[in-house]
Design a protein around this nucleic acid. Sequence first.
DNA 1: GTCTGAACAGACAGGTCTGTCTGCTAGCAT
DNA 2: ATGCTAGCAGACAGACCTGTCTGTTCAGAC
Lengths: 192, 192
Amino acid sequence: MVRTDVAGSPRERLLAAANELFYREGVHTVGIDRVIERAGVAKATLYSTFGSKDELIAAYLEGRHERMRERIERAIARHRSPRARLLAPFAVQEELAADDGYRGCAFANATAESHGPAAEAAVAAYRAWLRETLTALAAAAGARNPAALARQLHLLYDGAAQSARMDHDPATVRAARAAAAALLDAALPSGG
Amino acid sequence: MVRTDVAGSPRERLLAAANELFYREGVHTVGIDRVIERAGVAKATLYSTFGSKDELIAAYLEGRHERMRERIERAIARHRSPRARLLAPFAVQEELAADDGYRGCAFANATAESHGPAAEAAVAAYRAWLRETLTALAAAAGARNPAALARQLHLLYDGAAQSARMDHDPATVRAARAAAAALLDAALPSGG
DNA sequence: GTCTGAACAGACAGGTCTGTCTGCTAGCAT
DNA sequence: ATGCTAGCAGACAGACCTGTCTGTTCAGAC
């Protein structure tokens, strides 16, 4: 039934291959054949498992959502001060952007390339989660308008990913954290 | 030779068609056949004029660069105070995002979709121009570190376009201007 | 031993893509 | 009148795409 050897089940191998190829080269550019070849899986298996390429893209994005959520939540948990907790997502982004293979935000890239409904829903879910997380942290930090501060931080977060991708310059992400810190100074009561 | 009737030369018609279709649906999604059909131009004319699809995409982006440059420079010229001049690009973005057909930054979308060298060069040129413009304005405003401030504003500018595209919410761009204003307060000597 | 079902391998259909090439038309210059 | 050239129309090549389908292999259940 479900294979449990080192390489994992066909589903896991497909997701791993999709994650590598889709992120590096784009969901539209990479065809099904490339994915199944790298996964070592038959085409029929892909279609019986996911149903369509759009669903595979959505599953790939959901996997990234989950890993980002874990990573960001862990980074937040490492800090006590509300201010540091609000900056934690930018620290995560800084780590990611330091990698040679960094290609920006997978969600932004996917919606720019593809227009499938399942993929769009996965992107919306990720954005809603991040927005809510930031809003809750802003409220806990005593921001006068938590939703507005969260929106501004989300803007910076998106901008950092885009700029880093297009300029190929990791310094961009450090600048985003500095800008976020300046916004916090303006929005939080006396150095929360 | 060069046609000068209402519809313009084949080159102009091709650029107009490319501008509409590429921006609305994406440079990768829209094929050559759609462009020439809308332009009312033969395929051979497209290839004798531009040489390849990548070059057509680059020409489309150069056209947008030129129009954005004019528009932003006009908006800057309308203001005297250095602070208002630095915020002018965000005001332009706000106008653009108010349109129903707004789909975010054409340059960001194009590089996310396509990887042609000519198109990449066109995007780099646009980004360099905007960065230089912001840096010069920041220096004129007396910023302690004009390059750093320009980088932060550029980040916000990119983020606003991305967020507005993905969230379909023009309020995002207003938030970007507010965030930019807060950054200026922090970076400029006493309300320049 | 037999049966079942998951997965592999790969052909196939039907469509789309970029880019080339062959004719044809029509205006302009000489 | 004749030739030249820009441009139109559309066939064509060759590649690639998604998604379906046929046949085969093989591990485990009974």
